[in-house]
């Protein structure tokens, strides 16, 4: 085999590699984007059941309902509400009336089954519901 032929062969291999990569990128980026909505937007857009979405909003007051390790709560943007079901451990900063982002599958128009819950926290301000505990020095109860 001539050197020239081998060189062309390698160039062809590289081109194949590159095109495979580009196909993969295009295909996967199409199928793995998750759209980010507020509760009102989610209700407006009318998605298919089972689609993966991200919802951002505030955890509604008195809406958290924990049973065993299943947690249910409501995300609101002060206009519309979305129910969230979640199994697992909530982030440390998760609190009522705090900003939250959840990611999961739509199980009906107003409910998502979340597999991820993120609570956002800005270093510059204090989450207000924590302030009660700040008064005395003990945060955790001492009598478990």
């Amino acid at each position: 085999m001539s050197i020239r032929f081998q060189r062309i062969f390698i160039i062809i291999v590289s081109i194949i590699l590159i095109s495979i990569a580009i196909t993969l990128i295009l295909y996967n980026s199409r199928n793995n984007i998750i759209f980010f909505y507020t509760p009102s937007e989610l209700i407006d857009v009318d998605l298919n059941i089972g689609e993966k979405v991200r919802i951002g909003g505030i955890v509604k007051e008195n809406s958290i309902n924990k049973k065993k390790n299943i947690i249910k709560f409501i995300v609101t943007d002060n206009k519309n509400e979305i129910n969230v079901n979640f199994e697992g451990i909530l982030p440390d900063l998760f609190r009522e009336k705090q900003g939250v982002v959840t990611e999961g599958k739509l199980i009906n128009k107003f409910t998502i089954k979340a597999d991820k819950v993120f609570a956002k926290h800005d270093e510059n301000y204090i989450p207000k519901s924590i302030k009660k505990q700040l008064k005395n020095n003990d945060f955790w109860q001492k009598d478990y």
């Binding site: 993969l24 990128i25 793995n32 984007i33 759209f35 980010f36 991200r54």
Partner: peptide, 17 residues
């Protein structure tokens, strides 16, 4: 539109490459 791209994209693309 606000979107986020999750770990599946990276796993499915980077690993085969």
């Amino acid at each position: 539109q606000r979107v986020s791209i999750g770990a599946p994209y990276f796993n499915k693309t980077v690993i085969p490459i």
